[in-house]
Write a protein that binds this DNA or RNA. Structure first.
Lengths: 238, 238
DNA sequence: CGCGCCTTTGACGCAACCCTGACGCGTGGC
DNA sequence: GCCACGCGTCAGGGTTGCGTCAAAGGCGCG
């Protein structure tokens, strides 16, 4: 059930694997790649958080026993800014451990040793139910009078031609469009696009908003769709 | 995400328990009701599907071993029309069974005997991640006869046009609207908008209340919605 | 190794916002 | 009847925030 039944070119699912045991990571990576997942791997919590911010995985597989920090802290670190599904892997069978991890924000908890088939099924379940939530319950296609944004295909069309956007430009556009009509604070934009450790670098926003406007607005100096709310944030209007 | 800690009365979570073993159902019902869940119970698949349709539970706990039909069929029956989280309970440890149930649409799979703490934690996790997609994210709209305040989008509409508010104006309006009908003391307003170290600078309030009235009241010199209570504070009336 | 694209950073002008003080008005107390 | 106080209004000045441009730094690719 990986790809949709329609002809839409499905973007590959990105998985972030966090574990300090090389053989487990290797087994997971091999199995996941064989099933056409895109895989990133981290062997400690700090790297994991950085990678999560940079790569925006669709699902996280997290071993609780990490060398540098408590696994539950990694969960909290992720939950501070994202709702990405987290599948916890652990050798601890204790009920308390499970409860703590789940209440911290984990979506599932599998004890080692685990069956690869079961893990993959749980992974599919986690991805499946996150899909529509990630899409913001609705339109994959957002149209204005001047351009069209296809959130699924990650494409922007203007006057019949596709507009080329850099990765950062697209990310920014995506967050704004997913909140069409709503004000998005500068802090939220920075954290969603640049990662949780950002929040004050408003000059990034100014530069990239200008680029988006130059590429998409009819009159970039008088934006009609990418509205600035001084001191508060930005808003995308259709 | 920052869900507002406003005084919205939270509707109780409704759980549908499906199991043919009376002692398990009893244990679950007791534990769930003690935690303020609303519980329906079914002891066979047909009843379960009927109850699910009639009661629209927020989460389903399903035992795979039912007298009348295969548990996986129940999952498919539910998935035909709803995305309600399904937590499967089963005595079978076989990996194939788990994979089948999960791929049919189950969200989680717990093998009996299970720890009640763990089950409840998994239940919380399932409910939590379904929340915003389920029906939440509702617009927080406050309307008067002259203008409309959208607290989620941070937007004010008056006569079909959006009204531009400065950050301070918006903040002040927000505090007043969140306390619709109630008197808000000057000290409270100052501390919420300008920070805890403020409390006596009532002239700020006078200036900004005047600006709000000028932008939102039909007759700013005779305010109908932003009422002054001399010597005490201000009140927003719809 | 060199090239090009993307990201980051800094500087500058301008507009908007926030604070401040002064004044008028109405109300209640002495 | 006078005064004190609180509130509403207005206009000016300091400061902040935003848009813009340009250039340097990083990274992957040929």
């Amino acid at each position: 059930m990986l790809s949709a039944a329609d002809g839409t070119p499905q973007a590959p699912t990105r998985v972030l694997v966090i574990d300090d045991e090389p053989q487990i990571v290797r087994a997971l990576v091999i199995n996941l790649k064989a099933r056409k997942y895109e895989v990133d791997a981290a062997h400690d919590g700090a790297t994991a958080l950085r990678l999560a911010a940079a790569r925006h995985p669709d699902v996280v597989v997290l071993d609780l026993g990490l060398p540098d920090m408590d696994g539950v802290e990694v969960i909290r670190g992720l939950r501070g800014w994202t709702r990405v599904p987290i599948l916890v892997l652990s050798a601890r069978h204790s009920s308390d451990e499970k409860v703590e991890a789940l209440d911290a924000g984990a979506d599932d908890y599998v004890t080692k040793p685990f069956g690869m088939d079961e893990l993959l099924a749980r992974l599919r379940a986690a991805v499946r139910r996150a899909e529509p939530a990630g899409g913001g319950e609705g339109e994959v296609l957002v149209e204005t009078d001047e351009f069209t944004v296809d959130l699924a295909a990650k494409k922007v069309n203007r006057a019949g031609k596709d507009v080329r956007l850099t990765p950062t430009e697209w990310h920014l556009l995506e967050v704004l469009v997913r909140n069409t009509g709503r004000l998005v604070s500068q802090k939220q934009l920075l954290q969603e696009v640049w990662g949780p450790s950002y929040g004050t670098e408003t000059n990034y926003l100014r530069v990239y908003m200008a680029q988006l406007r130059r590429k998409l607005e009819a009159d970039p100096s008088h934006p009609r769709h990418f509205v600035t709310e001084p001191g508060m944030g930005y808003r995308f209007e259709r």
